[in-house]
Write a protein that binds this DNA or RNA. Structure first.
Lengths: 246, 246
DNA sequence: TAGAAACATCGAACAGCGTTCGGAGTACTT
DNA sequence: AAGTACTCCGAACGCTGTTCGATGTTTCTA
């Protein structure tokens, strides 16, 4: 471990924004950043966050581990590049027809889909390094909301709430799903079995009732219902503010 | 690294629920689980999640690292015990007077305060091992909502949405704050400086507008406004369902 | 009471991690 | 042709969680 305590984001930002000072001497580089980031994403897709390592990325590229560090100052920068890369993969719902609510819903669902497809990305968001694609992603959310009458500053707050909700649900379901996966007798089944055997249900009557019939709707339904509630609240807020302005 | 792939939660659950088979032979134990968990929590409070290590906990207790493993099968179980322990520290808002909405708000704020005080706890929630305190915490949320007319199954969905939101915002602000901290010239300032120098603001007009006046309200205000919107939506949902039932 | 069994403790080691160092080779500049 | 700046990378450092085996301690059994 001991990921270096990078107190300077400049190196990462330079890579994100494509500042590569062409070297004047020495042999040609065998690779470029794009290939490296692509390999890292592939590795994370296959092995998950646990399997993502500098050694793994290097060996997948057929180079020595130390060579990676001639392209990227540290793991922090690599993960930032990975995040900015996968954010760019799906098209942004910028100019969709419809209401601002439909557009921000599409924006939220896009993120939800990304985190569902790549749960490992949830662990890569710790250092919010603003790359060009992340910035475009953010701008697209502001544009989606732009006709609701709120100021960009107010809408930034809305976006952060929606983002927090999306990432929160994505994390909860990812953790849950990881526990359901696994060998012949899965983790989750054993967990339930122990609880059922050991816990006095009458001490937790409401939980007992909720736990019995928990088979209604998968994570997708759940995500949608929470998103609907959150955006209902946003809509009410928008109405309230516009009335106050009249 | 390489936290063991515990495919069996039984050991952790046994510890959480207080099943300690008294040993019949051998020397007395020098410590008990409570002391160990308390030391681990102290260490995490002081050093953060990065500084939490089995070696660190052991040396804080004045024992060898290997001895820790006679009390706890692995790090996974220790973190589960830590989470269950800190969840129990603040009183649950079970029988507060007021509406269901006021009660669930208090419940959400309690969590928010916990994650603000102990950001490291956000990284310990990966394996949702149900201990007695976590179960009581969940039951208290169901009880808070119990008078809203929804079934426990429906309310479980509401709770998960609120929980996801709380953890999501807590994580975003924790990450943000960690970046603002640090030496003389903080990370965040350098980040802004680079972006301001390098990025063409006219390509991201709304973001530019939002980024200028971002000094209105700290994370607490932001948390409250999002929570209010989410619960406005829940309230609307409750009304809708109760109308449908009439 | 002696011996065996079961336990606690822990130094040392293992495998894996991110990262750094120093040397070898390569291509461009002067 | 010499020098320089670069790429590449095996080996190592310090860290992590975890395991092994030896040693000591207590208690139960014969």
């Amino acid at each position: 471990m001991s990921e270096r305590q990078t107190s300077d984001p400049t190196a990462a930002l330079r890579l994100l924004w494509g500042e590569h000072p062409e070297p004047r001497r020495g042999p040609r580089r065998g690779l470029d950043l794009g290939r490296i980031v692509a390999a890292a994403v592939e590795l994370a897709d296959e092995e998950g966050e646990r399997g993502l390592s500098m050694r793994g990325v290097a060996s997948r590229l057929g180079i020595g581990t130390a060579s990676l560090y001639t392209y990227v100052p540290s793991r922090t920068e690599l993960t930032a590049l990975m995040l900015d890369a996968i954010v760019a993969e799906a098209p942004l719902p910028e100019d969709l027809p419809g209401t601002w609510r439909e557009r921000i819903e599409a924006w939220a669902r896009r993120d939800w889909a990304m985190f569902r497809a790549r749960p490992w990305a949830l662990r890569l968001t710790e250092r919010p390094l603003l790359g060009p694609n992340l910035l475009a992603w953010y701008e697209s959310a502001l544009r989606a909301l732009s006709e609701n009458g709120l100021s960009p500053v107010e809408n930034a707050s809305v976006i952060e709430s929606v983002d927090a909700y999306v990432q929160g649900v994505a994390r909860l379901t990812a953790d849950q799903e990881e526990n359901r996966a696994g060998g012949d007798e899965p983790w989750d089944a054993r967990h339930r079995a122990y609880i059922a055997r050991r816990v006095d249900f009458s001490a937790y009557p409401l939980w007992a009732e909720a736990a019995v019939g928990d088979a209604l709707g998968g994570p997708a339904d759940h995500f949608e219902s929470g998103l609907r509630m959150l955006l209902d609240g946003v809509e009410a807020d928008v109405r309230r503010r516009s009335e106050r302005r009249d």
